[in-house]
Design a protein around this nucleic acid. Sequence first.
DNA 1: GATATTTAGCTAAACTGGCGAGCTATATCA
DNA 2: TGATATAGCTCGCCAGTTTAGCTAAATATC
Lengths: 184, 184
Amino acid sequence: MTDEYASIIDLMPEPTDPNSGYWYADSEDARRRRAVDLLQAFRLYRAAEVAMRRRTRESMSMGENDLLVLRYLLKAHQKGELVSPGELARYLAVSTASMTAIIDRLEKSGHVRRERHATDRRSIYVIPTVDSDEEVRKTLGDMHERMLGAVIEMSADETRIVMETLARLQTAVDQVDAREPANR
Amino acid sequence: MTDEYASIIDLMPEPTDPNSGYWYADSEDARRRRAVDLLQAFRLYRAAEVAMRRRTRESMSMGENDLLVLRYLLKAHQKGELVSPGELARYLAVSTASMTAIIDRLEKSGHVRRERHATDRRSIYVIPTVDSDEEVRKTLGDMHERMLGAVIEMSADETRIVMETLARLQTAVDQVDAREPANR
DNA sequence: GATATTTAGCTAAACTGGCGAGCTATATCA
DNA sequence: TGATATAGCTCGCCAGTTTAGCTAAATATC
């Protein structure tokens, strides 16, 4: 895995000097500078987030996908739902072969166990253990609290503005379609 | 690399029904729902962005780190700066061994070339080729345009609100310190 | 100036985590 | 009943990374 440092796949201009403060005259030029600064702020945030995820992952000494699977299992477990390897493979969009390996690792480390499916004898359930539940909660609960605290004071208007911005950006990145590679 | 599907390392509640619209009465409960929705929006955006990066990466058929290195080199090249492998290794926080491998690949694929350092005979420069410049621009220029277009119409106030939110979230994730693993 | 230490990049071997192909057992369709 | 589809597993392979150690050159110390 190599999602270490966040950023970036772009050649955007450098951000303007942060010391110049947050206000800009609203010329075309100022708008552009604001936009660039904002995108830069998104990149910085992403960098911080990726770093946080890396720390978390390492503190539980497991890979990203292993942790994602565990999290998915715990959420399902809370709702009383049972999960099969195939479902997990589809969720992560990895091959069933890889999923077998992931479950192997999680089983070996005592985070999940395999159980026979109630009716389909080809299939199994992957069940998170009680320990893994506590471990994940301890590891992730702190983050959840902090992130919620960072946005809980926002007004309805502010929230709307941020969400709309996110929506526009999402539409933008969705429309970036990678062209075919040269040789194909 | 496994940054496929974005999200997540958390057990946050499900978002509230999006059909319920963007307005909420401002009770404690409403605030909380808003906050959760907002965080969910961030996760969705991240998922979209990660997917976009994957597409881009694949369209140039190279790894994330290779692309990051190339981008770094191009930016430096624009400024007339010369870059050494060591600098790149520090930038990506990988070992010098990995960086050697990355440069090997990029050299083989014709994206960069190695040159002798002007004064330090232990060291080298890594120079991006003209072709790679064009290729990256073609691949990434479109994304840059679209993302800028998504935020260029925003007012100064709106921009400020979003940036402040990002700053608060960044502080929050920075403070999430992974505890030591059990065995150490 | 000679010697010791540090630095820069490279090589080799090992590890990780992913994949496709193919296997077995079971379920389902015609 | 027989053909086909599905579920999960095994095997061999590959990409990319790491650690340890190497050589050569620069820098610090005596």
